[in-house]
Design a protein around this nucleic acid. Structure first.
Length: 948
RNA sequence: GCCGAAGUGGUGGAACUGGCAGACGCGCUGGACUCAAAAUCCAGUCCUGUUAAAGGGGUGCGGGUUCGAUUCCCGCCUUCGGCACCA
């Protein structure tokens, strides 16, 4: 018989369906396993070859689990609300309902043709009123618990889609979907208080087994930072400005303040401001800028000073100017900052541009290492030092001192005497130590630092407070240095590039780098200076002390901030779940009573959007008109709908009990299925979707609907599949591979095998037609192998240990999503079988079972053709015997000085002495005239002989 | 700029905990079968060298640790992701 994939695949898909082979039971004695693949968005484009990648991976797991004796839930459904369908419907003038049904039909046929073991009796559709009834139910619960609120807020407005976007939907200042310009617009929006769960969402990750990458992206997305809020009084008023800072330790260095353009202070202080019109002009300009411009023009800072008012720095009562600038955002912290130009890149840049004073309050601290390591027991001698970078008059060179017998190579260094300026000390030291006299210019660095090291020539520990000065020499005018200086060290010229590798005194290097790379503010760790009661403390200690001080004085408090904002939950669109609220002039916003759910989406004929940004539902006057559930008076329905993240935030619960019309799912059933054991989806959903779903789940846990605080145990993400040209598949590029064509020409099993074999599951890969052919050839060989099978229910002796190894390899690899190497191991085993005249039934059975999760149709057929009992999906997953993983004889490589020279065959338990004897025999003559230094034998692995 | 991941033949990619680099697939070369082609089967395929071998080199670059490094450490370069004036 020939391998006709079309017949075989059709036949088995019908049998599986008819016998309900993959139906999950809600009560079973078997252990449960819940495998979940992200449900697709049924777009008009049909199934992409990327979809089957994740579906096959989890299908392999699901099928393997069934063979291992689990009651497996592996469901599928449709995430069908959303903009693409709505846009498609407008363009093609059909109703989104009809478009959705058509798309689902195509997707379902395509997915079914691939033979996944989905339990189709649990299929769900987020646009089905019997489903979104419960999405609305959850919204009402959120409202009931104060987590849904309507708020007038500036939102991201896509000028092209005419829709409000969540921060999450804006990429680089452009709309994520259409690429249109995004501007800020004020709008009343329903919001969900996800920020209230920010900490729980970070903490909860500990309970999960997500891949590390997913965990970190969740944490980064939430963006927790802890710091302090500090109040700055405005001079001569009772008003103050509240700022948020993570660096309260630098308060003494705060030389100005900046407020965001939208900050209400300008309004409040309008009367006092001398340059109000200039400020208002700046505000107007800032408003016009799109987010894109605002973030792209990072380098060129702009701003206007608020003239006529000053703030008071609470730590030293100094008056500081207040500026308005769009480098401060209203949406983060308090919308105002204290600026510390000496220790913040942005503040530094701004201060340089507008000539605002820069005051250093943190000194970098270098601790001596190596030769100049601090000596225990020796006292510290404190003094002010200058380190001098002496530039050559014409070449890119600097001077260094070689300290001869002390083994130092340093910059020109020396002490600063009382009352002396660092620049003067530098000139004096250069003249004394090097002999060069003719100095052209002197530049002192703004930053000083602390250096602790052992001064070898004086035999003391030195604690130097170092200033750095750059000196340029005019010419080589030279006077012999004093005898004492000359004997101590010699001066040499060295290229600036690479100088840091020669000058090995650690405490010089920081400034040397700064000199080479240009002056920058110091943002690192260090010791406080110029800060009164904080002087001498380290940054962390100073933060604490300052915070305590602020609290004590009632000026500030501890504060935690998040990058995460509340979730904008309104969309002014048609194709989404109606938000189940009504507005009554008397009672305000009133929830629709639970018993009146679902609020069904009315059938509208027109989907054209108004420029006012109203939902198309706003035109449905009949639908809008309703009565207030509280007072019975006239009321209006909410016309905003939910974003398409809503339906997907809880769908995994509905699969457990999809036809329940009393609850989202029955308590017992939720308890039985517990967490999703393994959830796989696209990389693009590892932040938003996953965060939203976890948020809702945690809320449902808090109100007692679900018994677990986290919804998913394992989370993995598959990589994208690109076209063979390395680009994204797209109609316009004409490089789209349609899965239907592969299934038709080569078969579903071939496509499945290829997608698993294509490469690292988590990586992006390019499609390869030749790769598909290779997988088909492999399956052809599996088919032909059946001709070699002879009777025998034991493994052939000569392949026994290889079979056991393969079982182990395949079992482990499937579990770790390393399908490519698992399949490679099976290919290797097949090649081995093919070298032989015959194989036994047992040899063949184990092979078929191992490849069955990947290629289920062909293995079922071969199982039946060979007349084996039952169906292959009813068999047990093969087990390996640890003892049989090791061969009786082992080939051991011999290295000489780490280079492979020969190989010998030894017995698996052979003694070391005997092995080494064999080795000497093998390498006879190779050691003539050489001395064997060492013989290393790693049991059963390798021999290495070291000779001289 | 910050964070993360990765760099291995012509190509997709393997290599346990530091132990034979290149498994497996693709492509390519030669052969068998065929009137011929396709398909299939057999052999070869990191580079250099050679009739063949021996020998030498080789996992982005430069150092280091080790009997031994794709793997560990230090310093660079490049690519791809994520975040991006987050105070």
């Amino acid at each position: 018989m020939n391998y006709n994939h079309k017949e075989v695949e059709k036949k088995w898909q019908e049998i599986w369906e008819e016998k309900e082979v993959f139906k999950a039971s809600n009560n079973s004695d078997k252990p449960k396993y819940y495998a979940l693949m992200e449900f697709p968005y049924p777009s008009g484009a049909g199934l992409h070859v990327g979809h089957p990648r994740g579906m096959t991976a989890l299908d392999v797991i699901a099928r393997k689990r069934r063979l291992e004796g689990y009651n497996v839930l592996y469901p599928m459904g449709w995430d069908a609300f959303g903009l693409p369908t709505e846009n498609y419907a407008i363009k093609n003038k059909i109703h989104p309902r009809i478009a959705t049904d058509q798309n689902i039909k195509v997707f379902k046929r395509q997915i079914k043709s691939l033979g996944f073991s989905f339990d189709w009796s649990r299929e769900i559709d987020t646009t089905d009123p019997s489903y979104y009834k419960w999405t609305q139910w959850i919204f009402l619960k959120l409202f009931e618990h104060g987590l849904a609120y309507k708020s007038k807020a500036t939102i991201n407005w896509c000028t092209s889609c005419k829709i409000g976007l969540a921060n999450e939907e804006v990429e680089g200042g452009k709309c994520e979907r259409c690429g249109g310009e995004v501007v800020q617009k004020e709008k009343e929006q329903w919001m969900l208080k996800i920020t209230e769960y920010a900490d729980k969402l970070i903490e909860g990750l500990k309970e999960t087994n997500y891949i590390e990458r997913v965990k970190t992206s969740q944490i980064n997305w939430i963006g927790k930072s802890s710091g302090s809020e500090v109040n700055f009084n405005i001079k001569g008023t009772d008003k103050n400005i509240k700022v948020y800072t993570t660096r309260p330790d630098t308060l003494f260095g705060a030389t100005y303040m900046v407020i965001a353009p939208e900050h209400p202070l300008v309004q409040e202080m309008a009367e006092k401001l001398e340059n109000l019109s200039e400020i208002n002009m700046y505000k107007e300009e800032a408003k016009k800028k799109t987010d894109f411009e605002r973030t792209e023009l990072v380098k060129n800072k702009t701003g206007v000073e608020l003239k006529g008012i000053k703030a008071i720095n609470p730590v030293n009562n100094e008056e500081v100017p207040i500026w308005i600038s769009d480098y401060v955002m209203m949406g983060y912290g308090t919308g105002a900052i204290m600026a510390v130009p000496a220790h913040d890149d942005r503040d530094y840049e701004f201060a340089k541009k507008f000539n605002i004073p820069i005051r250093q309050v943190i000194a970098e601290e270098f601790l001596g290492e190596g030769k100049d390591k601090i000596r225990e027991g020796k006292p510290f001698a404190k003094r002010k030092n200058v380190h001098v970078i002496v530039k050559h008059w014409s070449e890119e060179k600097i001077l260094y001192l070689d300290w001869g017998k002390h083994g130092w190579k340093s910059l020109v260094i020396g002490g600063i005497e009382d009352g002396e300026k660092a620049e003067d000390a530098a000139i004096r030291e250069v003249k004394e130590e090097t002999g060069y006299q003719d100095i052209r210019s002197v530049k002192a660095f703004g930053f000083e630092y602390h250096s602790k090291f052992y001064a070898v020539h004086k035999d003391i520990n030195r604690h130097a407070i170092v200033s750095t000065v750059v000196i340029e020499l005019e010419s080589d005018e030279y006077i012999e240095p004093k005898k004492q200086e000359k004997e101590l060290h010699l001066a040499h010229w060295i290229d600036i590039k690479g100088a840091d590798k020669v000058i090995d005194v650690k405490d010089n290097l920081g400034e040397l780098y700064t000199f080479i790379n240009g002056e920058t503010p110091y943002t690192g760790d260090g010791v406080l200076i110029n800060s009164e009661f904080l002087n001498g403390l380290k940054v962390e200690e100073a933060k604490e002390k300052m915070t305590e001080w602020l609290i004590e004085k009632g000026i500030g408090q501890k504060k935690i901030n998040y990058r995460l904002n509340d979730w904008v939950f309104s969309r002014q669109k048609y194709w989404g779940e109606p938000i189940p609220m009504v507005h009554c002039d008397k009672c305000g916003y009133v929830p629709v009573p639970y018993e009146n759910l679902p609020v069904e989406l009315p059938y509208v004929k027109s989907y054209e959007y108004t420029d006012t940004g109203e939902s198309p539902l706003a035109k449905m006057t009949d639908w809008i008109k309703t009565t207030c559930p509280t007072c019975g008076g006239e009321a209006k329905r909410e016309t905003d709908v939910m974003p398409n993240w809503a339906g997907s935030s809880w769908y995994y619960l509905r699969y457990m009990d999809p036809h329940n019309d009393k609850e989202i799912a029955s308590k017992d059933v939720i308890k039985y299925w517990d967490k999703v054991d393994w959830y796989n989806g696209g990389m693009e959903h590892t932040t938003r979707h996953l965060l939203y779903a976890r948020f809702w789940h945690k809320f449902l846990y808090d109100i007692g609907v679900v018994p677990t605080s986290e919804p998913f145990n394992i989370r993995t993400s598959h990589g994208m599949i690109l076209a063979s040209d390395g680009n994204k598949m797209s109609k316009s590029k004409g490089n789209v591979v349609n899965p239907d064509e592969i299934v038709d020409a080569q078969g579903a099993d071939t496509l499945r095998t290829y997608e698993m074999f294509i490469g690292d599951f988590e990586k992006t890969v390019a499609w390869s037609e030749n790769g598909v052919n290779g997988c088909r050839r492999f399956l052809d060989r599996v088919w032909k192998l059946s001709d070699k099978v002879i009777l025998g229910d034991e493994y052939s002796k000569d392949t026994e240990s290889m079979i056991h190894k393969t079982i182990k390899k395949v079992t482990d690899d499937y579990e770790n999503m390393k399908f490519n190497t698992g399949i490679a191991a099976l290919m290797t085993l097949l090649n081995k079988y093919n070298e032989k005249e015959n194989i036994t039934d047992a040899d063949y059975k184990v092979f078929l079972t191992l490849i069955n999760p990947v290629a289920p149709h062909i293995t079922e057929e071969l199982w039946t053709i060979k007349g084996y009992k039952g169906m292959i999906n009813e068999q047990a997953w093969p087990k390996y015997d640890k003892e049989k993983l090791v061969d009786d004889t082992i080939e051991v490589p011999i290295q000489v000085n780490g280079k492979l020279k020969a190989k010998i065959v030894i017995d698996k338990d052979e003694e070391e002495a005997s092995v080494l004897e064999k080795m000497r025999c093998e390498l006879q003559g190779m050691f003539d005239g050489k001395e064997i230094v060492k013989e290393i034998y790693v049991k059963g692995k390798i021999i290495n002989v070291v000779v001289k």
